[in-house]
Design a protein around this nucleic acid. Sequence first.
DNA 1: GTCTATAGGAGGATAGAC
DNA 2: GTCTATCCTCCTATAGAC
Lengths: 226, 226
Amino acid sequence: MPQAADDNRSAPDTAERILDASEWLFAEHGFDGTSMRMITTRAAVNLASVNYHFGSKEALFQEVFHRRLAELNRQRLEAINRMEADAGGTALKPSQVLDGFFGPALEMAADTEHGGYTFMRLLGRTYTEPAEFIRKFMAVEYAEVVERYTAALYAALPEVPKAEIVWRLHFMMGAVSYAISGIDALALLTGHFDDDPALLKPRLTAFLLGGLRAPLPESANTATRK
Amino acid sequence: MPQAADDNRSAPDTAERILDASEWLFAEHGFDGTSMRMITTRAAVNLASVNYHFGSKEALFQEVFHRRLAELNRQRLEAINRMEADAGGTALKPSQVLDGFFGPALEMAADTEHGGYTFMRLLGRTYTEPAEFIRKFMAVEYAEVVERYTAALYAALPEVPKAEIVWRLHFMMGAVSYAISGIDALALLTGHFDDDPALLKPRLTAFLLGGLRAPLPESANTATRK
DNA sequence: GTCTATAGGAGGATAGAC
DNA sequence: GTCTATCCTCCTATAGAC
């Protein structure tokens, strides 16, 4: 590994070509289903260059995620900082919190020109892959954002128990992830899919808000509160 | 392939050992991440026996799904038949429809003794894998159930446009899938997870109903109606 | 920095003895 | 039906020429 992941300034664009090619291939075929040869062929670079620029296939995979997630979570933090400053100490509205968290992801998913959509598909399928090394760096990458947004949701919904909110955040992430990465699955199950993709965001937001503010199940009242 | 998938009666239990072993391995490592050698080692059978009993790795994968999905969708059809008979021509309640569709899946997911939970994890991660041969047989396996339940939802929610219902069914499947297969991801993102798994079903149901019956986004009124 | 060539091993599948 | 032995392809990673 001749250089760290962050100082790719010296490499003109072969490193980026590799990142772009592997992003699409990992989204399409998964980590194990994608070979170095597929990557280097698609990127039109030499087989050896992946190891030269990234050190290993795993490190490349990690870098594919870091490149996008860093930007995504930067936007999320910026959004919540701005909203909380505007609110001046009062709690945010649930819809604001959802918008700050899922908005950047949905915008990225709407970008079919620069690989944003491809990456979100990859992210969606990666959540369900329990491979050890993946889980490790995802936890690090997400830590701050999750902490800030769960805290904001606690404040926005004081009548809902915290354990319930954590669950509902989880449910929402599932719904969003599928909404993005599983559009093909939807077409598959329903036979066809001929709707305007621009309507996804309002539709999803309405659905999520409904779920987030749903009446509690009776049994939840006896649940642990933290 | 010396015998069809359905007449495994003659094979005492090695075929079943292979199915059980591969179900867990596929859930844990995915299709490409699981090798024949891993499977036969875990099942304590010979390397050649997978090809003898199933013909190929792909055919084995397919059979792992068929075994559980056939049962799952049988229960779903039985539930809707029973409910519609009881309703005598009137529309079902949304909560009934959700219960008929997601109930059997959640019950299977709660079964940690006989591999039900393992399979539901596998199913969850498979939805996001766009491999051609997988999509093909999933569509066949699900066709009837999806048709019946979407029709029931249309009737249960006459005020919600059909396109919206299809989307919301999709969102719900995502939420359920993550709720089941991503419990570890939840623990990962929130740092810990010490809640009672038995509370999952009421929690999820409350969330789904809230989303399903959420007020429409303004823009949805202009959406296509079928 | 980039390439070719190849090491060294793991993959799915099968032939053929028992 | 079960097992061993093996074919041949493909893998990641690296050594070393340019």
